[in-house]
Simulated scan of single mutants.
Amino acid sequence: MNWSKRSRQRKLTRVKVYRYQDANQFYDRVKDYLLTDEALHNVQLRLCHSLIHNPESFEEKPLLATVEVEGDILAVAMRTPPRNLLLSKIQDFRAIEAIAQNLHLTENSLPGVTAPTNEAKAFAETWRSLTSQSYEMKMALRAFQLKQVEKISQATGQLRQATECDRELLIDWFEAFGVEALGIALTNTERAVERHLQRGTAYLWENETSVSMACHVGITPNGAAISLVYTPPEHRGKGYASSCVAALSQTLLSRGHKYCFLFTDLANPTSNHIYQAIGYQSVGDLYDCSFFRE
């Protein structure tokens, strides 16, 4: 059968949604699909790893679903309440209608959706037509991937792993990051700091005193992700964040990870510039959309 004929037949085939109760079975099913664009899907891959290895971190049952036709995955959907719905890159936009209809049977409302740009727009419109929930684009994001750290002018100081003595500082900086970078007051900040201290994944740039922060927030089969990059206002403009992220990226690559990943807010030209100078390359854009009732 030639490709065009198969394609026409697939368009006539009913799209099906499959939900999974077991994170291991779900990961086995979606791993290869997500790895076709590992950088863009690094949140989903990291989330799978956490659900399998640290299920106690999640207070509510996750939503794990695929949209398929004739055994081929068209889309992957995930949600760990109270967070947004996460959608993968989608091969066939019939999957948007299918997952929205399926969710509408079990969810009275959603807080939002995070997905590649076109997928986020399409789902938000479909969800609005089903539920009368309006939406707004909360943040335009860009996904970045790094294979090799470029040499930059290093700021004075050095990277060090955060310790128990830094607990209060980390709580303050986590909260400040949430307000400044995300526009929200983060919940369970103390619990998040506790996890990072236990796992040794919070790092500080030290120049006589702590001046910048970056955290290793999870792994994928081939990479490691960085987030929670924060420098307090009085220490900005001195290259601390660049040096902190560059040093942490190199640390993670030296441990055997092939890539490092991070996301930036497209409205922040400074962060987009400094990460590219370090060696991060753009791999795609996403929207973070919020839903609300008027």
Rank of each mutant, 00 (worst) to 15 (best):
G239P: 02
E56L: 06
Q198Y: 12
T156D: 15
A115F: 08
L286W: 11
S7W: 13
H104Y: 12
Y287S: 03
L228D: 03
R8H: 15
T131S: 15
I219N: 13
H41A: 03
V43Y: 02
H235M: 14
R19V: 06
T270D: 05
T189K: 02
G237W: 09
S50Q: 13
A75H: 09
D37Y: 15
A23I: 07
L252T: 14
L85N: 09
D166T: 01
E150P: 01
V15P: 05
K121S: 06
N118C: 07
E97S: 13
G256K: 12
E97T: 11
L86R: 07
E59C: 00
T117Q: 10
P82W: 01
N108I: 13
N24E: 14
Y135R: 09
L197W: 00
D288G: 05
L12T: 08
D92C: 08
S242T: 15
T126R: 13
T189N: 00
S50M: 12
S153D: 14
L253A: 08
R6M: 15
R14K: 04
R6K: 14
A277D: 04
L146M: 00
H196L: 07
T187V: 00
V149L: 04
F261I: 03
N108K: 13
W3E: 08
V211Y: 03
I226K: 14
V217L: 08
S271V: 04
I278E: 05
E190F: 04
V179Y: 00
G200Q: 11
S134F: 15
G112W: 04
R195P: 04
E194P: 00
V17A: 03
L85I: 10
V15I: 12
G284W: 02
L74I: 11
L253V: 04
L170Q: 00
R29Q: 15
P55S: 12
Y230N: 01
G284L: 02
K138H: 15
L40E: 13
Q250E: 11
A225Q: 03
G183L: 01
H49S: 07
R142S: 08
P55A: 06
G112L: 05
R6Y: 09
S7R: 08
T66S: 01
Y18F: 07
R167Y: 10
Y280M: 02
S129V: 03
S227H: 05
Y275C: 11
S290C: 12
R293A: 14
K11A: 15
L253F: 03
F93D: 14
